[in-house]
Amino acid sequence: MTTEEIIQPQNKVYSRPRLLDERDTHYCPGCSHGVVHKIIAELLDEMGLENKTVGVAPVGCAVFAYNYIDVDWVEAAHGRAPAVATAASRLNPQNLVFTYQGDGDLAAIGTAETIHAANRGENIAMIFINNGIYGMTGGQMAPTTLLGMKTATTPYGRTAELNGYPLPISNILATLDGTCYVTRQAVHTPAAVRKTKAAIKKAFENALAKRGTSVVEVVSTCNSGWKLSPAKSNEWMVEHMFEKYPLGDLKTPSEEPKN
């Protein structure tokens, strides 16, 4: 069989998602954000949510998420996405409202907004990209930076004495009555990508079914910040990040709506 014979429309098994904008992303080569964006764009199309979705973008590398996925967006102030999403969701209960946040946004400056939105059981999905570093501002320490990890503001490695401990915020969120689903995934292998997609799908379904707050943490790489190649970053993540942030479900949803 020739390549020309294979490359026929009826044989297509994977293509660029329709809801992913034509423009190239500003992300560095190999950045996990692109994969998660792709998953979200695929799901919003597959689930028929294009016209009833509002995404809330963070401050951080994903600040321009609204440029890439073709649904309505609101760009929040740093850390405030869960508050913005709270109102967007309560005032438009027919819509799917999700936040897309990094570790600095969700687990440092926005900790109060994150915990209280989750504690109120807002019917939103929070997509949480945890790469243990501040990418956009040039590689500074994040709340999730591992002990010993070198960043622009911990040039000799993070120490507990100086900077405290890496914050496993998803574990905290899983203990709250308002969350229905908290899971930690990754996108470093095809299988992991598929699992993350299933998790985000479940989170979107929970929000639409008014089951409470869902949190999908995606343990991610920042190869620029980590100063490794994308492939080496994945290896480093598996070796180091997964120890502190093990993959798997932290809380699974019940099938019934909360109210």
Binding site: Q8, N11, K12, V13, T25, C31, V35, P190
Partner: peptide
């Protein structure tokens, strides 16, 4: 699946 820039189309027979 792992491409962050969605620049690969795949065909299969």
């Amino acid at each position: 699946t792992v491409c962050p820039d969605a620049c690969i189309e795949v065909y299969r027979v």
